[in-house]
């Protein structure tokens, strides 16, 4: 089979396609003047709501820490340390979130396919980094309510054990989740299942595609 044959088969559709295509001007104008803006609005609203929620939560945590320091006594130690760490992790989360939003808004599809697809894949992969960091706050939700005044001196062995098991388990879970966020695991079924539930399927696809792009680029060096 000659190259020209392939092109000719393809061309057979071209002439007819051109004739069969018509631009629906009314819809077209509606899209570019109105619907294009509208279609972006829900997404922008959702993203803004996320930022607002993050900020409110950090303000609440900040106020808690500020109050505890202003009225300091050793009873607040666990609270100050735990809530400060949670706040710091969430501040990092907020900056990640804002950075992602700014990247998303600034991606211009004008660029070459390789350039844009790599940017998009990289952006999606950075969401993994974000969720990895966010996992680290879990154990501190089990320690902020403790107080030097009654813990551990005034609690029974049963409570002490329970607290250790809960905090220990969450600390281990945090560490485990943190360490599992690595590309090798993207191939594993259980990891994919776990991420699918969190709406991160697109991240897995991005990772696969990123590999594809790397292979595509690497072929260049064989030439």
């Amino acid at each position: 089979m000659e190259n020209a044959e392939l092109i000719n088969i393809w061309k057979m559709q071209n002439a007819k396609i051109e004739k069969a295509l018509a631009v629906n001007e009314i819809l077209f104008k509606e899209v570019i003047n109105n619907k294009a803006r509208n279609s972006l609005r829900p997404l922008a609203r959702l993203k803004s709501a996320g930022v607002i929620a993050f900020v409110l939560y950090i303000l609440l945590l900040g106020y808690g820490v500020f109050y505890a320091i202003s009225n300091y006594s050793s009873a607040w130690n666990y609270f100050i340390v735990s809530v400060s760490i949670i706040a710091l992790i969430n501040i990092r989360g907020l900056t990640d979130y804002i950075r992602h939003l700014s990247w998303v808004n600034n991606i211009n599809y004008n660029g070459s396919v390789m350039e844009i697809q790599q940017q998009l894949a990289r952006l999606k992969l950075s969401i993994i980094q974000h969720s990895k960091i966010m996992c680290l706050q879990f154990p501190f939700y089990t320690t902020f309510y403790l107080s030097d005044k009654w813990f551990p001196a005034e609690v029974g062995i049963g409570y002490l054990l329970l607290q250790t098991v809960i905090t220990g388990s969450l600390a281990y879970l945090s560490y485990w989740l943190y360490s599992q966020h690595k590309p090798e695991n993207f191939e594993k079924k259980w990891f994919r299942k776990m991420l699918e539930g969190s709406g991160l399927t697109s991240v897995i696809n991005a990772m696969d595609f990123y590999k594809e792009l790397e292979v595509f680029k690497a072929d260049n060096s064989d030439v």
Binding site: A22, V23, N24, L27, S39, R41
Partner: peptide, 12 residues
């Protein structure tokens, strides 16, 4: 989010 019922580019 805001689908149109018909296509912008119609094809016969």
């Amino acid at each position: 989010s805001n689908p149109l019922t018909d296509g912008i580019i119609k094809y016969t």
